[in-house]
């Protein structure tokens, strides 16, 4: 089936309203897109996080598909166990084979930090499952603490913008690249605003003969300090500034799926969110320059992997800062 929204509205996405996610949250939008894109019957494994506590509070659940949550760090391992159970139950003739997809949703904390080893183990073992990282760059459920996905300079409650240290002192982990290094069949970056790209990737991931990993950019209006209606706009900005390029690694081959050119400097992105306000207000050009340099370095490394020439920032950081 081609991806046409009007056709998709005829389907039940399997995720009900009335959940407790914040107004403007991107996570449920991603969940609905993922569930709608699947061809097979899903079984979902959740890591502890915003999505889990907001959508499965006993005696209620927002989900109309089978789901398990057991702890923070081990959702990929839950999927390993479910996939193994499926294989063995079929092999023993205790259940009929039927097309099923084992989907994991974990936040960036669950993926980049506490569940890193559990995910890596499951990827290495080659279980057939799809891991969706809902990447909102921090521990939002516990009150906006920094994670390995939080970017340089960002205010969080554990990296406050102080007189000495202006927000998070470190850049971020290239989790998508790390997963790709496992040599699994399908790895991709997607973003919530680009539903067609995300759903196309879910469909590719579902057909992969082994683990698939989607790192999905998931803006958080509460934690990033912006108005709820801007969730999609900020997601779009992240792609346009090449902070979050849309790409895939299909059987080891890198391919850009989003814009081939960076069309905006990072400062446009920084200005869109309160979590970077101190960088702009206090004129922290050093930090802003470092952020831009990191974005440029990663963008050009990705372009190289995709067989493209390196590219400079459209408007230099210096120009952007001095224009302020």
């Amino acid at each position: 089936m081609t991806l046409k929204l009007r056709d998709l509205t005829l389907l039940d996405d399997g995720f009900e309203s009335g959940h407790g996610l914040c107004a403007g949250c991107s996570e449920s939008v991603i969940v609905r897109q993922v569930l709608l894109a699947l061809a097979n019957e899903p079984v979902v494994a959740l890591a502890t996080g915003c999505l889990e506590v907001s959508s499965t509070r006993f005696p209620d659940t927002a989900w109309k598909v089978p789901l398990i949550h057991s702890a923070f760090e081990n959702a990929a391992t839950s999927a390993s166990g479910i996939e193994a159970a499926y294989k063995a139950l079929v092999r023993k003739g205790r259940m009929a084979e039927r097309p099923m997809t084992f989907v994991v949703f974990g936040g960036d904390g669950a993926t980049y930090d506490i569940g890193f080893q559990w995910l890596s183990g499951a990827l290495e073992r080659g279980h057939k499952f799809m891991y969706i990282c809902l990447n909102n760059e921090g521990y939002m459920n516990t009150g906006i603490q920094r994670s390995g996905a939080t970017m340089l300079g960002a205010w969080t409650t554990t990296t406050p913008a102080g007189d000495l240290v202006p927000g998070k002192p470190q850049w971020r982990k290239d989790m998508t690249g790390i997963v790709a290094s496992h040599g699994v069949p399908y790895v991709a970056q997607a973003a919530v605003h680009h539903w067609k790209d995300l759903m196309t990737k879910v469909r590719t991931a579902e057909k992969a003969e082994g683990p698939a990993f989607l790192n999905v950019f998931a803006p958080c209006d509460r934690g990033w300090r912006y108005e709820p209606e801007d969730t999609m706009a900020i997601s779009r900005l992240a792609v346009e500034t090449a902070l979050w390029p849309l790409y895939e690694v299909d059987d080891g081959k890198y391919k850009l799926n989003g814009p081939r050119h960076k069309t905006r400097p990072i400062i446009d992105y920084l200005e869109s969110q309160g979590r970077f306000r101190h960088l702009l207000k206090d004129k922290e050009p050093g930090v802003i320059e470092e952020i831009q340099a990191n974005v440029d370095r990663e963008w050009n490394r990705l372009r190289e992997r995709c067989g493209l020439e390196p590219e400079v920032t459209p408007e230099t950081t210096e120009a952007a800062v001095s224009a302020d």
Partner: peptide, 8 residues
């Protein structure tokens, strides 16, 4: 835990 909840 995953396997047991899956009926195994």
């Amino acid at each position: 835990v995953g396997a047991s909840a899956a009926g195994a």
